[in-house]
Design a binder for these strands. Structure first.
Lengths: 170, 170
DNA sequence: ATATAACCTACTTAACGACTAGGTTATTCG
DNA sequence: CGAATAACCTAGTCGTTAAGTAGGTTATAT
C-alpha cells in the first residue's frame, strides 16, 4: 500500500516528456498523450496546477503547447509531485492545515513519529532526483525494471547521491 | 499526499497498546478501543489479519483478549503495516502480483525508478522501528509532536539507527 | 448456565480518484 | 479576414474503495 495517485504518476511522466524536449520548442498535450498512452483530456487537468506552480509554460494556438520553465536539471521530482498532489503527508496530523490539538488521540500518540519519519524519507528521495536524472535513466532504458533484491548503490543517479542511501532489501 | 490508511494508523496504535501491556496478560478489543478512542467493531477487522500474520494471539472468554506473540522489541512497525495493508507499493508495477510487460507504458518508463526508491526508503524506515521504540516515545510524551524543521539525528530511537539517515528538512 | 469476548461474514455508505464533456480565449496561417 | 489549433477553464459522471456497522457463531472462565 501507500499508493501514489495516477495523477502524480502520469504528471511525472508528462514532465519527463517535456524534459526530453527541453530546448526544442514545445509539446502539445495531444503529442504527450500519444507518446505516454494517456488521455489528453486528463492531462489537461494535470497541466493546470503545474503551470500555476510555475513549472511549465503554455503557448496557445497552432504549434503551441507546453514547455518547462526551467532546465530539467533544476526541476526536482519533489517539486512536480507537490505541485500535483500537495505536500507529502501520510496522515492528516502532518499536513500544513492541521491545527495542533484537534486530534483526540494526540496526547501520547506514538505512531505519529513513524509517519513523520516516513514523510521525511519520501521527501528526501523526491527532492534528490531531478527530471534530468529521469531522462537519463529513461534514455538508457535498462533501468526501467530493476529486479527486486538487486539494487545497486546509487552512484551516477541523483544529484544528492552522497546523502541518499538505498540499502539492498530482503 | 501519499496517504496511509486509517486501517494502518489505527492498527499500529492498537499494537502499541498491546506492546505497553506486554507481560501483563491480555487486553480486550473494548479496552483498546476505549483508550485509543476507536470503534471496537472496526478494531476487530484489524485484529484478524494481525492474528493470521502471527503477530498477536487471541484468548476467548471472560478476561480474554489479545496479546503480542513476540516481545515488542522484536516486532517491527513494518511487520505490522504489511500485515494490515500488504507490502508497500506506491504504484501497481511494484506489487508482487504485477506481471512484467503488462503495462503499456513500461518501455522507457523513467518514473518507475522513482517509486521504487520511495518504496525502499519507506520500508527501511518502517523496518528500523520496533513497537518497543514506539512505547518509549509514547511514554516520554514529548516526542509526539516534533516541530517541523527541528528533527534531531536519530540516535536513541530505532535499532538500525546506524543505517537510517533522517536529514534535517528545509 | 451464563456472561464474556474472540472469531467470522456480509452489508452499507460516503468520499474520492479518474476520467469525460462542453465550453471560451488566444494565436498562427492561408 | 476566418478557420484551424491548442491552451485554458468549469462542471459532471462513474466506479472503486476505505471506513465503519450489523448480526451472527464458537470457545472459555466463573
Amino acid at each position: 500500500m501507500l499508493h501514489v495517485s495516477q495523477r502524480a504518476h502520469y504528471g511525472l511522466r508528462a514532465m519527463t516528456e517535456l524534459a526530453k524536449a527541453y530546448g526544442n520548442g514545445c509539446l502539445s498535450l495531444v503529442e504527450i498523450a500519444e507518446v505516454e498512452h494517456l488521455s489528453a483530456g486528463y492531462l489537461e487537468q494535470l497541466a493546470m496546477p503545474l503551470r500555476r506552480a510555475g513549472l511549465i509554460e503554455g503557448t496557445r494556438g497552432p504549434h503551441g503547447g507546453y514547455s518547462l520553465s526551467k532546465p530539467p536539471a533544476e526541476l526536482t521530482v519533489g517539486e512536480v509531485i507537490r505541485a500535483l498532489e500537495g505536500p507529502v503527508a501520510p496522515v492528516e496530523c502532518l499536513t500544513d492545515e492541521y491545527v495542533q490539538g484537534s486530534c483526540i488521540r494526540e496526547p501520547g500518540c506514538g505512531s505519529r513519529v513513524v509517519w513523520r519519519r516516513v514523510q521525511q524519507s519520501i521527501d528526501q528521495v523526491l527532492d534528490s532526483l531531478t527530471l534530468a536524472d529521469l531522462c537519463a535513466t529513461a534514455a538508457r532504458g535498462e533501468v526501467a525494471f530493476i529486479p527486486i533484491g538487486d539494487i545497486k548503490p546509487i552512484g551516477e543517479l541523483g544529484r544528492n547521491s552522497g546523502t541518499v542511501r538505498c540499502a539492498v532489501t530482503r
